[in-house]
């Protein structure tokens, strides 16, 4: 259930450069223990997305590869 957030990431800032966009984002996930207690962990990080690629798609792909989602 920890993956069912409506949208687990938030794009905080986009800096457009010559070859792409540097994106500052916050990603969160929920961990539910066997006793039902829930904790939410959030991390802020950056990703560089080359021009022409979809920022959210690249971000999700990156988060999946990194084991966050």
């Amino acid at each position: 259930m920890r993956h069912i957030m409506i949208k687990p990431f938030e794009i905080l800032r986009e800096d457009l450069g010559n070859e792409g966009t540097l994106v500052l984002y916050k990603v969160s996930k929920i961990k539910i223990a066997d006793n039902g207690n829930a904790t939410k962990t959030s991390v802020t990080s950056t990703i560089f997305v080359e021009t022409g690629l979809d920022i959210e798609e690249e971000l999700v792909k990156n988060l999946i590869e990194g084991g966050w989602l």
Partner: peptide, 18 residues
Amino acid sequence: ANNVCYMMVGFKTAAAHR
């Protein structure tokens, strides 16, 4: 649980279901 739902959606709920 409402507290879990709050973490998901960011607002308080009276009840939440899937």
